[in-house]
Nucleic acid binder design. Structure first.
Length: 420
RNA sequence: GUGGUUAUAGUGUAAUGGUUAGCACAAGGGAUUGUGGAUCCCUUAGUACGGGUUCAAAUCCCGUUAGCCACCCCA
């Protein structure tokens, strides 16, 4: 029986794994400078946590969640996103009782049952952050700027920041109503695609997100025009702060999100290097969620970026996201009878030099083959444990780049008085 | 979930329905009996899976699986 990775999952090894680790390393550095600390949370949670936070009628909950029962009949779900878990943890551990502001970030994989495509997987990696306790526009702006900085440092050349405001409990229903009325007028609905006809009743905001060509949004009402005075003021100040920080963006009146918990500012960052799945990062404010999940009323803003998409975009911008490797030393053996000796030399070298990587010994291969291997491994130096040298108690050290060879005393190498 | 498209050694590819499925790179070995990157030689290795049509299938048909593209959705 042969097994293959489940559909929509992928193995990451060698340079792919290195790229992911390096991206997370870059993100950690940025988060640290913005005073965010890391949180690790379970890969599965009570399924109800997600239905309540993301929304019963959203696609993620309706058809993309991996839901299962454990042996005691508990209804669990693999996490489709991180925000719900972070909020759950915040409330459960009463973090805001200790400090009025909490800034957390996470790296990990998320699970959604979707049809796989380039840039869309059933298990995919996200890096996200959540900022609790600051209702002011500076939190929105800080999160967007921080997000932008990670992408820039990851080497992405072309991306656009789209922002919009979804209003609050007061003004969003007003907008919804005017949208429904607009699309409800005779003749207008007929212009919409069948999907959108259906959406008008269920979730009229999503109609704005439709990408079918030829949609006429000329006279469509904008959320912007329905914003209540305080939401309008908030949105203006967020933009002012972004301008002040020199962070470019565009207002996208058609931007809506697929998760129900967002309020006020939402944003999405897209890369032209990606094709249809072009959102590399997205987020927004969610001032009601903590309360809805049983905590005290707490304002919050957050975002998550798709690591694979960021890596694809970065690679397209000719940044390979690979960290430099340490020099490697290869231990070669001239004869199988010296394998034990070669092994102990290799062990001594590993103990002495934390920065070097040692391959071998391959006692069953010809010295020539071992050199070929050393070359392919990218070894900087080859240490030869040979019969001639062994008689004299020494080792030959060859610098692969210069072809210079020198000798080192075996005992000296083993006790650390001679460093290769 | 919908539509389309593709699937040949590890990788990239070739083969009007008709010999033993060809080539390149990679890999292993050798030419050089203790020294890598070049050259030459040899070797290993393939029609995704399951049915069907046919004297004959990599090739045509159906199904499955998987990748990709778009929709949908989203990170």
């Amino acid at each position: 029986m042969k097994f293959s990775a489940p559909r929509g999952t992928h193995d990451l090894w060698a340079q792919d794994a290195a790229r992911l680790n390096n991206l997370e390393l870059i993100a950690r550095e940025v988060f640290e400078r913005y005073n965010f600390s890391e949180i690790k949370f379970p890969a599965f949670e009570d399924a109800g946590l997600f239905t309540r936070s993301i929304g019963e009628a959203t696609d993620i909950v309706e058809k993309e969640m991996y839901v299962f029962e454990d042996r005691k009949g508990r209804k669990l779900a693999l996490r489709p996103e991180g925000t719900a878990s972070v909020v759950r943890s915040l409330v459960e551990n009463q973090l805001l009782q200790k400090l009025p502001v909490s800034k957390l970030f996470y790296c990990g994989s998320m699970f959604r049952y979707e049809r796989p495509q380039a840039g869309r997987y059933r298990e995919f990696y996200q890096i996200g952050a959540e900022y609790f306790g600051n209702a002011g526009p500076s939190a929105d702006a800080e999160v967007i700027i921080l997000n932008k900085e990670i992408l820039s440092r990851a080497g992405i050349a072309n991306f656009n920041i789209h922002i919009n405001s979804l209003g609050c409990r007061e003004c969003r229903p007003v907008f919804r109503k005017s949208l429904t009325e607009y699309f409800g007028e005779a003749g207008k609905s007929a212009d919409l695609c069948s999907d959108c006809q259906r959406r008008i009743d269920k979730n009229p905001l999503r109609v704005l997100d439709c990408k079918v060509d030829g949609h006429k949004f000329g006279g469509v009402p904008k959320m912007y025009d329905s914003l209540c005075p305080s939401c309008l003021e908030h949105f203006k100040r967020v933009r002012g702060l972004l301008d002040a920080a020199g962070c470019g963006y565009e207002i996208d009146h058609k931007l809506v999100r697929g998760l129900d918990y967002y309020t006020r500012t939402i944003f999405e960052i897209r890369s032209s290097a990606l094709g249809a799945q072009d959102a590399i990062s997205a987020g927004g404010r969610y001032d009601n969620l903590v309360e809805e999940l049983g905590g005290a009323k707490t304002p919050a803003v957050g975002f998550a970026l798709g690591s694979e998409r960021v890596i694809t975009a970065a690679t397209a911008s000719s940044k390979n996201l690979e960290p430099g490797a340490p020099e490697k030393i290869f231990v070669a053996v001239s004869s199988p009878v010296l394998e034990n000796e070669a092994f102990s030399v290799a062990a001594a070298l590993r103990g002495l030099s934390p920065q070097v990587v040692i391959e071998g010994p391959f006692a069953d291969k010809s010295l020539k083959s071992q050199f070929k291997l050393a070359d392919r491994f990218g070894a900087g130096k080859v240490v030869i444990v040979g019969e001639e040298e062994f008689r004299r108690g020494c080792l030959t050290v060859r610098d692969m780049a210069t072809k210079q060879q020198s000798e080192a005393g075996i005992e000296g190498v083993k006790n650390g008085t001679y460093r290769i």
